[in-house]
Amino acid sequence: MRNAEPMKERPGAAPAEPTAFALELPSDLRLIDTAITYLVTRCREYHFAGSRLTLNFRVGVAEALANAMIYGNGRDPSKRVRVEVELDPQRINVRVVDQGKGFDFTELRDPTLPEHLEATGGRGLFLIRSLMDEVDFNECGNCIRLTLYREKQQRPLAS
């Protein structure tokens, strides 16, 4: 796992200056937790906290990494996943890019419907969309961009 040098901690108010860094991981599912732990530490240093960080960010980004490794890179350990993070006082932006041919993100099934409740899969993308404030994909589907605001946003009526 490669990364930039750690940012200096600034106690007190949230840092005003945006910062950015990136990680590259081989497609090894066992590395996801290590990567998430590192990302959460960086966000904490930037004064993000609470369940927005421990639930929304952790689970949302972990799902995106798993999708990139499993569906994007086909679990091929020689293929890498790049994670680009931008932090500013209002939001966390994460781009997860894999080396696959793309994934069909338009297929949506509601896993909370009674007929799907006992399905063993099909909750990953649902969780990403539910936990992150903004979710976008590039055209070919090998890049997902996630945005999480420091404060909970009002959801638009249409999604």
């Binding site: 421990t54 909750r123 990953g124 649902f126």
Partner: peptide, 17 residues
């Protein structure tokens, strides 16, 4: 436990069944 992802939830559903 810190967090559970969709795969973890899937395993719990599968085991329960």
């Amino acid at each position: 436990t810190g967090y559970i992802d969709s795969s973890g939830l899937g395993v719990l559903v599968s085991l329960s069944k």
